[in-house]
Design a protein around this nucleic acid. Sequence first.
DNA 1: GGTTTACACTAGCGCTTGCTTGGTTGACCT
DNA 2: AGGTCAACCAAGCAAGCGCTAGTGTAAACC
Lengths: 195, 195
Amino acid sequence: MNVVNESPRRKELTRLAAQLFVQEGFDRTTVRMLAQEMGIKSGSLFHHFRDKQEILAAVIEEGTQNALTIARHALEECGDTAEARLHAMACAHLETLLTDRNAHVVALYEWRRLGAAARDHLSHLRDAYEALWEQVIDEALDAGLIHGDRFLVSRFVMGALNWTVRWYDPEGPRKPEDLAHELIAMITPSSHAGR
Amino acid sequence: MNVVNESPRRKELTRLAAQLFVQEGFDRTTVRMLAQEMGIKSGSLFHHFRDKQEILAAVIEEGTQNALTIARHALEECGDTAEARLHAMACAHLETLLTDRNAHVVALYEWRRLGAAARDHLSHLRDAYEALWEQVIDEALDAGLIHGDRFLVSRFVMGALNWTVRWYDPEGPRKPEDLAHELIAMITPSSHAGR
DNA sequence: GGTTTACACTAGCGCTTGCTTGGTTGACCT
DNA sequence: AGGTCAACCAAGCAAGCGCTAGTGTAAACC
């Protein structure tokens, strides 16, 4: 048995699984459906993953890991004004929500189906990501760019951003940067820049 | 068979089902679990509901109906300034999210499990509710209270509010009105009222 | 006093589920 | 040439699933 490797094959299978989990939901996705989508038989699945739950964990880990990478990179690239960093963070969030959409939708909707062990491990990853957000928001508060309670502001912002997966249409006229810009315009009293 | 009545018994069963659906998720909740929670045997369940999906539909309908009622009531009671109406709407939203928490969590997480017919019927209900929001936000835009794109602003606000079900602790120090107030302070450039 | 109605029960059918078992294949290494 | 190993398959098990059929019973109604 294979189980904890990082073979390219496993990565590809994880990607396919994410798509099915979004389409059908984790519970309704059977191992036979997963196997068929991957072009193998259901028994062969358990060569790559210990059990069905491990596939879910792999999907979510992949997505969260990417989000962390992208966000860290964005924060290094951007300037060091509070506004630039806030914008970079929002952009990065929307960008990863878009390109890794399947994985993130799964993370948002199927989190509760994780086993206790996997949930434990992954919530550390998620906490690391959210810490980036709170840091950037702290900076914006200190700079007087926004006002309010740091806890509440960060929750509200993350809520607004994560909710986008329910309505955002990548084919539509709005780009992720537009959304980020508009959101920041909405919460910063100084800037009245419309569109 | 009973099926489409509105007996008080059925209402109570719906409430219990909502709780289980939140705890376990719709798919993992078996008819036997539902029956046990209700103090009957699984077969008897189908005297009250045509099938399992109808239970889900009943849960969501109940929650959405309540949200509509509360929101309409709140809009009648409050004053007619744009700010008062915005605040009333946000309060009503959080209040129903709190008191009918189970039903709304189910609506948010298990919507996709609805059959096509039920989804059709319920999306009309939901649209009616969202129309209230867009109307109030339009008024706030016209009054110059907030700025930005009406579509985006309403999505962002609903996202921030709905996200509260993931972190809000009713036992904590913050009351729903506090949240509503802080959210509105965050998006209205004029008011710098802290807490 | 007989019929209806609402609600519950027992028993189980037919099917699907996640997962296991035991074995085959072909590429690669020595 | 012999051995290793990841990758896959066919077959199937035990458990659990949603749901149905047929029956019992106590209260409500005519």
